[in-house]
Simulated scan of single mutants.
Amino acid sequence: MSPQNNKSQSSLFGALFFPVLVIGALIVIAILVMSFTGNKRTAPSPGDNIRQLSADTMATLRNQYDQLGEAIGDPDAPVTVREFGDYQCPACGNFEPTAERIRNEYVDSGKVRFIFFDFPLSMHPNAQTAAIAARCAGRQDKFWPYHSRLYQTQSKWAEKSDPSSAFLDLGLEAGLNTGKLKACMKNKTPLATINKERGAGEAIRLRATPTVLVGNTEFVGGPSYAKLKKAIDDALSAAGAGGQSSGGDGG
């Protein structure tokens, strides 16, 4: 090949390569800028995880969805606490001891009604099966102890391709009729209710699990015991010294 041809090819290579290199660099810079500005735009401020829900939203929860959740406590309790959870969600598992402590301290005294709403996320393949198992346990009046055990044993069943045997073992521990539990799980009897419950999460524009409502005050993520206790005590005070109900939402 002649030197002239080599020179022509080098010139052609340079003419094609450098513009491509510049365009590639500009694309990388653009992606970095978009990523940075996007993260900045969506990063939550310190108060973003707490907000007040509207009266209309609370009325929708009371009138359409509360009856679908698993509830414990006096329906006329001055304050209602609502939790939206996913059994395979690690944050929900971490929050469960706090939720259980609140139930133990406030429900039996008649001060709080606690309602749990299932919101299994598609990213957690065993969450829906776990929710079905818990609701099946509820048909034998064992929802709450089974609910707590699901969270306590989360790491043991979360990654199983089929967690059914683990869920049956939990039923045996809880004193359930495992034959009935197995049949209920196989038929997915509670699934229709669980699917309807999703409307409650959509009504509040659920952003994450767990989400906890104390009256109309929403905490995204599991609030600490101290923060949750303060919110409940403030709602009880707002409800009046006589413990008068204020629509079950603590004011």
Rank of each mutant, 00 (worst) to 15 (best):
G138P: 10
T57N: 07
S35K: 08
K40A: 15
T37P: 01
E173T: 05
S11R: 14
L191I: 11
P125I: 03
P210F: 04
S2R: 10
D74I: 07
E197W: 02
D162C: 08
R113K: 15
N216G: 09
Q52N: 08
Y65H: 02
G251Q: 06
D108T: 14
K188A: 13
P44R: 11
G175H: 04
I27L: 10
Q52A: 04
L32C: 09
F119L: 13
E100G: 06
G240I: 12
Y65Q: 03
P75V: 11
R41W: 01
G110Y: 13
A30S: 09
Q64I: 07
R41A: 15
R149Y: 01
F17W: 09
A137I: 11
S246M: 11
C89Q: 10
T80V: 13
L213G: 03
A183I: 08
L16Q: 00
P163K: 10
T129G: 14
M123N: 09
N177I: 08
S165P: 06
I115W: 05
P223T: 01
S148K: 12
D108E: 15
F84P: 03
P145D: 07
A158G: 09
G221L: 01
A131N: 02
N126M: 09
A133S: 08
T98S: 06
Q128S: 07
I194E: 03
I232F: 09
K180P: 00
Q88A: 15
G201T: 06
S148F: 12
L168H: 00
P190E: 00
I194V: 01
L26R: 05
G248S: 02
Q128Y: 05
L213K: 06
Y65F: 15
S122Q: 15
A55E: 13
K196S: 14
I27R: 00
A43M: 11
G69D: 04
E202T: 13
P75H: 13
Q88M: 12
D162E: 09
L176V: 14
D66H: 07
E173C: 00
A134R: 01
L191M: 05
R149A: 12
Q9D: 04
G199R: 06
L213S: 02
A203N: 02
L191K: 09
E173F: 01
G85I: 05
G73T: 10
S109C: 08
N195Y: 13
M1P: 14
H124R: 10
L206Q: 02
S148D: 15
G38D: 07
R51P: 02
G247C: 05
L12H: 02
P97N: 06
N177Q: 12
R113W: 01
K7C: 06
Y225Q: 10
M185G: 01
T129W: 03
N104M: 13
P223L: 03
K111T: 07
I50T: 13
E100D: 12
